[in-house]
Design a protein around this nucleic acid. Sequence first.
DNA 1: CCTACCGATCGGTAGG
DNA 2: CCTACCGATCGGTAGG
Lengths: 194, 194
Amino acid sequence: MEPTATLSRKEQVIRSAAQLFREKGYAASSMRDLAQKLGIEAASLYSHIKSKEEILQSLCFDMATEFRKSLQEVESKNVSASEKLKLGIIGHIQVMAKDLVASAVFMNEHRHLSQPFLRDFLLLRINYINRFKDIIEQGIASGEFKENVDKKLAVMTLFSSLNWMPMWYDPQSNIMPADIGRQLADMLIMGLKR
Amino acid sequence: MEPTATLSRKEQVIRSAAQLFREKGYAASSMRDLAQKLGIEAASLYSHIKSKEEILQSLCFDMATEFRKSLQEVESKNVSASEKLKLGIIGHIQVMAKDLVASAVFMNEHRHLSQPFLRDFLLLRINYINRFKDIIEQGIASGEFKENVDKKLAVMTLFSSLNWMPMWYDPQSNIMPADIGRQLADMLIMGLKR
DNA sequence: CCTACCGATCGGTAGG
DNA sequence: CCTACCGATCGGTAGG
């Protein structure tokens, strides 16, 4: 019984929903669409989940947890700021690569969370971003990074690049997620210019 | 009669719709929501527009036209590839800054276009991206950029950073759009490392 | 997991 | 720009 082969029915529902939400968006995805994907009636979905939004909550908060775990591990390492930034980027990319579909939903559909879930989600995100900003500040303080860099711009550019990766990364390609992370980190840290 | 002060009723409808689509997403925005924003009945909207989707089409294709015009102007200039890239980035940012709301809709909601509009839209986008990729290739060929750079990664990182700008840029701030463009270009071209 | 069904809401039309 | 309205579809429940 491998864990990947024994998805509970609830997990199957959530995974199918993630695919649907990514394709059509949360609001445009109906429970009847989802039921059809699974070969059952719409009403039957409710024996596995409480509501449509509960699925979105699972997807968003499970991803958030993975991102937090990855960053926490990086922060505990005793390395330079630029190395920390690089490891943080690679970690983020690897978390996304483990579930590109859920990552895309996490990024594009979280705004459809109702309160108080939306607020909680945004607080988690702000916290995560600020911790990356701290790493950049450490790099400036230590002289590793340019001192005249706009921190907000830098961190927003970083997250834009990171979060769009699920939109264009092709898992069939032979380039590994960690390599994407490494190249992205190099590009952001060193630039294109030689 | 300044043009900004004399929006036709149709233009008012489209602008209000853009705000609504940005806030709630296209699918979750109802024509009744839109009518309420304008202080009229939902049915009355249809004397100004043909359908909900027509509004989305206007927003998406008008933005696409502006982006094309900006890039065309840059391409006609006889400057180095790195300068062209920089001007292209600044132009893109300035087009977005002229209408941040429409830019956000352009980026996030275009997938709700029906065929054949969606296909046309994606073709325009691919063309635009490829022209930026060409500039990067010119820069590699001329020795301005690193030769071992991953072009796809570079151009995707570039557009991720560009397209997320409407999500975090605060027009109240005293930093001008062209400055954002310049800083973004510098960061992508030169990196953070000093 | 199904049948049968609910009230609410959707985009849009007819006719003025 | 309004009133009046349409058929379709929505998320979800009751009861088995």
